[in-house]
Design a protein around this nucleic acid. Structure first.
Length: 572
DNA sequence: GCCGTTTTCGGCCCGACTGTTTTCAGTCG
């Protein structure tokens, strides 16, 4: 099996931690950390580039040295430099760095003075009181580390974006009602619409002298106040999610929003450009010397660098700043571009509502069309439909469709792709449908080559309209299946097959980087909810978020098409 | 270790909060 990007990223990040603990050149440390981020965020496997002999130094932050190291890892599966460093500095120290409150300096002290190499050692040393005796540590640090370790164990990890919304919305409203508060914005990865959110960054402007921090820490869901200052406080919610609140003057709102939205890599790049122009950017504004030249809103901040405003979803330092400078930012898709939904379920299989209820709910949302796509027979857990049951459903869809003046109900099925790549129902039945969404539900553990060929074979059948949730992942629960996504995409393009961006918050499959690849390879997409209830028809916007992060423009997405053009496009 | 309409050498983002320090280091975002 070839080495995955995530593995290379992990090795580089680990090396960066260890070199930092060893107090080596901090810029060398940054170079490895930056390379980890760049490789981890690539849409194509870097192993493929190595195989075809592509020049890796084209990648940002990858020079001769790092390119050679990547090639070595891909070809041998080993990283001798890391092995060498780990002989003098235990690799597990990198895990210790993940404990909140521990950075390279404290980890180094803990290791050198007490021989602590991991969380278990640390816990023991905290119990015996050895830690508080160290210079630079004290009783408060000891208590903080004890609670940090407990929190790490309880590790709720990252929160799904949709769940983070349910925490952020009521808190934002609460803050908006606090005395003297003028503006409230949720920034950070939440605003960049990442599929998961680590903690919530909330920005507030207020009238002078307002006691926002008192109001913030009085929020009913606050479990623990971690730090509390005049302009910045951190709390832990009872759910385990951390929230940082920053208060800035109104005149700094744009600069602060830009700054706290990140990503860090984007900001570093932006500030580098500012430095070249003798400007300084911080969360209070853009400054030339001591004079503020921008900061009231984000447009001003970017304009000070001769850049157009950059949508938050793109701010990952993945080429968006260069594109902005060229005037070549994409016109990103928006929820209002979508005219319908091509994947949903009803009570006939594992959905919660009838066909009629789903149809009316979609019509209420202004959809021009909705495809009913219940499961096929192989997915027995969901009471998948066999040929006869599907024919009966087709008749019922036709009946209900006649009662809907303003919306077209499309006949479809979520068709299982069997292990040999054949489709789960006979062609003669499928020919009665407007579309199929085809998906793998079993045999997710096949090898990369077999899984790829299985899906390509399924797409050989012209009745395969849309490949649904192609990676088969469940965020935080199930890893994506092994797949040569580039081959799948090239295959889809040749065959006129469409790839789905499944909007279920725990799927979001295709991922953001897959979407970016689809743009590069000119593959058509559909953004679908896979709704199992009427309420879930509202999830489309999460699919849009993911597509926007992948630079997707409306023209790439077939369910932006009016009905007539859509129907033509569905016929391969 | 990377990178260059200031540079192939000499730079590399910047401020807030905490605790232990008695003037600042460490961590975080």
């Amino acid at each position: 099996m070839s080495v995955q990007n995530a593995e290379i990223a992990r090795l580089f990040a680990r090396l960066a931690d260890l070199l930092e603990i060893e107090q080596q050149n901090p810029f060398r440390v940054r170079a490895y950390r930056n390379a980890a981020r760049v490789i981890g965020g690539l849409s194509h496997p870097v192993a493929d580039r190595v195989a075809t002999g592509e020049d890796l130094t084209d990648l940002p932050g990858i020079g001769e040295d790092l390119a050679d190291r990547i090639i070595g890892i891909v070809k041998t599966g080993r990283f001798p430099l890391l092995e060498e460093v780990e002989r003098r500095t235990p690799g597990t120290l990198s895990d210790l760095m993940k404990v909140p409150g521990l950075g390279p300096a404290r980890v180094r002290t803990l290791y050198r003075e007490l021989g602590i190499t991991g969380p278990e050692d640390l816990e023991r040393a905290l119990r015996t009181g050895a830690v508080r005796e160290l210079s630079g540590f004290g009783e408060k640090t000891e208590a903080a580390l004890r609670s940090a370790l407990a929190r790490t164990r309880a590790a709720s990890e990252r929160t799904l974006l949709a769940e983070a919304e349910t925490l952020a919305r009521p808190l934002s409203e609460w803050l908006g009602g606090c005395e003297g508060v003028l503006e409230v914005a949720v920034a950070g990865s939440f605003r960049r619409r990442r599929e998961t959110v680590g903690d919530l960054d909330i920005l507030v402007t207020c009238r002078r002298g307002a006691s926002v921090m008192d109001c913030f820490t009085a929020w009913e869901d606050v479990g623990e106040v971690i730090s509390r200052g005049r302009t910045r406080s951190t709390v832990m919610l009872r759910s385990g999610t951390q929230v940082d609140l920053r208060v800035v003057p109104q005149i700094s709102y744009g600069a602060a929003l830009q700054y706290f939205t990140g990503s860090r890599a984007h900001n570093i790049h932006v500030r580098r450009i500012a430095g070249q122009r003798k400007l300084k950017i911080n969360e209070y504004g853009v400054f030339r010397g001591r004079r503020r030249v921008a900061g009231r809103n984000e447009e001003e901040v970017y304009a000070a660098l001769d850049l157009p405003w950059i949508p938050p979803e793109l701010r990952e330092d993945a080429g968006e700043i260069e594109a902005a400078a060229r005037g070549a930012l994409p016109r990103l898709i928006e929820p209002s571009d979508l005219r319908g939904d091509l994947h949903c379920h009803t009570r006939a299989t594992d959905g919660q509502q009838s066909i009629g209820e789903m149809a009316r709910a979609a019509a209420d949302r202004g959809h021009e069309y909705l495809a009913i796509t219940d499961h096929s027979r192989r997915v027995s857990m969901a009471h998948g439909l066999d040929a006869d049951a599907l024919l009966a459903e087709i008749d019922e869809i036709d009946r209900i469709a006649e009662t809907l003046p303003d919306m077209r109900l499309l006949k479809g099925i979520e068709l299982d792709i069997l292990e040999d790549g054949s489709l789960d129902l006979p062609d003669r039945v499928l020919d009665r449908l407007d579309l199929t969404v085809c998906a793998v539900h079993y045999g997710l553990g096949l090898s990369r080559r077999r899984q790829t060929e299985r899906i390509l074979r399924a797409m050989d059948n012209p009745r395969c309209t849309i490949l649904a949730h192609p990676r088969g992942r469940l965020i935080g629960e199930r890893e994506p299946c092994e797949l040569d996504m580039e081959r799948i995409m090239r295959g889809a393009r040749e065959r006129g097959c469409i790839l789905e961006v499944n909007a279920q918050p725990r799927r979001l499959d295709l991922s953001d980087s897959d979407c970016r690849m689809a743009c590069e390879l000119d593959v058509a997409l559909a953004i679908n909810t896979d709704a199992h209830s009427a309420a879930q028809l509202d999830l489309l916007r999460f699919g849009v978020d993911q597509a926007r992060r992948g630079w997707v423009e409306p023209g790439r997405v077939i369910n932006t098409l009016p009905l007539g053009e859509l129907l033509a496009r569905l016929r391969r």
